[in-house]
Design a protein around this nucleic acid. Structure first.
Length: 255
DNA sequence: ATGGTTGTTAAACAA
């Protein structure tokens, strides 16, 4: 089972790239973030024409998440307890018997800001939800744009980013709290190139200079971690014309 | 370089 996650930064703009990518890579599940499209305007026809079904939770202008799958989803959650908000940042579903949670974590803007405090509170509520999901389903995969670089090796210039947004200790501790529920960052199960990143700012030719962060993650509970046979970042879509600022992350599980 | 770019939506906000 191949599961991918990709922050597309507008599904409307990126739809041709998404269709092309699923045609080439044929994931069983593609989790999307920042679709920025209402459910009414979701491009289901084009997705279906590619052989995929779609479950989605969107809004106008901001946020929006979706799961594209080759088989029907069951038990879809879009409103997590403790996260009662208009923001469409979460969707969970069961695919082929595997529970998958897709997150678009709050960015937080700047350490110390109101949005930063909200990010930490939001992550706490997500941890509670994930704890309940593990209790309920046993094995769980969590994917998404975490907007947190877990460690310094996930940052192109750790000193420049020291205690900055996406890298601060409280954010990393919030991620650790989630990992302690029994999750592993499956990317680190495998040997990886140094300076492997999943997001590069549009500005300052950051991609060309590989000035990136690894903030898009695939987490799995122990049994699923054990059957994970690869996890890679596909940098190629970041080279497209009008690219998303994020690259897809792909993990394959023998289930 | 206290900058730079992209997306949405109509001058500013979010990332």
């Amino acid at each position: 089972m191949k599961i991918a996650t990709w922050n597309v930064n507008s599904l409307k703009v990126r739809l041709p790239q998404v269709v092309n990518w699923i045609g080439a890579h044929k994931p069983d599940v593609l989790a999307l973030q920042e679709t920025k499209v209402t459910d009414e305007n979701f491009p289901a026809v084009e997705i279906n024409a590619s052989g995929y079904e779609a479950a989605f939770s969107g809004q106008k202008t901001y946020n929006g998440v979706a799961m594209l799958t080759t088989t029907p989803v069951k038990d879809v959650d879009t409103n997590f307890p403790g996260l009662v908000t208009e923001e469409r940042r979460t969707i969970a579903a069961t695919v082929n018997g595997v529970r998958i949670v897709n997150l678009y974590v709050v960015n937080g803007q700047e350490v110390g800001s109101e949005k930063y405090a909200y990010k930490l509170k939001w992550l706490d509520a997500v941890a509670d939800y994930l704890h309940a999901q593990v209790e309920k389903w046993g094995d769980v995969i969590v994917v998404g744009d975490f907007n947190i670089a877990p460690e310094d090796r996930d940052v192109h210039d750790p000193e420049a980013w020291r205690e900055q947004i996406l890298c601060s200790t409280p954010e990393r501790e919030a991620l650790q709290k989630i990992l302690k529920l029994g999750f592993s960052d499956v990317f680190r199960k495998f040997e990886q190139d140094d300076k492997s990143f999943s997001w590069w700012d549009y500005r300052a030719a950051a991609f060309r200079r590989n000035m990136g962060l690894r903030i898009d993650l695939v987490l799995a509970t122990e049994r699923l971690r054990d059957v994970c046979i690869r996890c890679d970042i596909d940098k190629s879509p970041r080279k497209n014309e009008r690219p998303s600022d994020h690259a897809p992350v792909v993990a394959e599980f023998e289930v």
